[in-house]
Amino acid sequence: MKKLLLLLAAVVLVFIILGTLGPLLGLAFALAFVFLGMHYYVKSNSVFSKVIWIFIGLIGLLMAVSNIPALVGLVAIVLLYALYKKWKNEDITLPIKEEDDPFTNFENEWSKITK
């Protein structure tokens, strides 16, 4: 019964993703505009070209804001990934290295100092 519910939820999520495919593609196109605007703004030297690239980046940002239904599609993609992991009986973990955590490093160094 549990596998049936997971399968039913996966089918519903696939339909949601397919329904929001247009806004997802629009969001990707808008974010490409934002990226290009930022990239070429940094590379440009003249004030006029910087203003043009800021304008292009703002157009991309406004396009991205208008694609709010794409957020539903993104959430559906994440939930479908979680259901896939649940189906395979795998844990969903975030790839965080403990040595990159400043608090863990502090605790390790503090324990070395107090010894």
Rank of each mutant, 00 (worst) to 15 (best):
V14N: 03
P23K: 02
K2V: 09
S44E: 14
Y41E: 10
A9N: 06
L5H: 08
T93K: 12
V14F: 04
L94V: 15
A28Q: 05
K115H: 11
S111D: 13
I96G: 02
E109G: 00
I54T: 14
L21D: 05
S111F: 03
L6F: 09
L7T: 11
M38Y: 12
N67G: 07
L13A: 12
V65Y: 04
S66Y: 15
N108A: 12
L83N: 14
N67Y: 08
Y40A: 00
G37F: 04
Y40N: 08
V11L: 13
V42F: 13
Y41R: 07
I96K: 08
K86N: 06
F15P: 00
N89F: 14
I113H: 01
Y41H: 12
I54Y: 05
F106N: 01
L36C: 14
K43D: 10
G73F: 06
K112A: 00
I96S: 07
L24S: 08
V34C: 07
P23E: 04
L7C: 07
L8I: 12
V72D: 00
N105P: 03
H39N: 05
D100C: 00
A10D: 03
E109S: 06
I113T: 11
L25N: 02
A76D: 00
L25V: 11
V12D: 00
G37S: 03
A76K: 13
D91I: 11
L25D: 08
K112C: 00
G37P: 07
A64D: 10
I77Y: 01
D100P: 01
A70S: 14
Y41T: 11
L4N: 05
E107V: 03
V12E: 00
G60Y: 07
A70M: 07
E107Y: 11
T104N: 12
A64G: 14
L36R: 13
P95W: 00
I17F: 01
L4V: 11
M1C: 05
I56D: 03
E107K: 13
P95L: 03
A82W: 05
A64E: 12
L61Q: 04
K50A: 06
I56M: 10
F48M: 13
W53E: 05
V12I: 15
F48C: 03
Y84H: 01
Y40P: 11
G37Y: 04
S111I: 02
L31G: 07
F48V: 10
L13W: 06
P95I: 05
F15H: 03
L27D: 08
A9W: 06
K97E: 15
L8C: 04
H39P: 07
A70I: 14
D100H: 04
E98M: 06
I54C: 08
L31T: 10
P69V: 11
L58S: 08
W110M: 06
L8E: 09
K3E: 14
G57W: 06
L83C: 07
F55C: 12
K115W: 01
Y81H: 10
L83P: 01
W87A: 11
E90K: 13
P69H: 02
A76W: 06
M1A: 12
I52S: 09
S111A: 07
T104C: 05
G57F: 04
S49N: 09
P23D: 04
L21P: 02
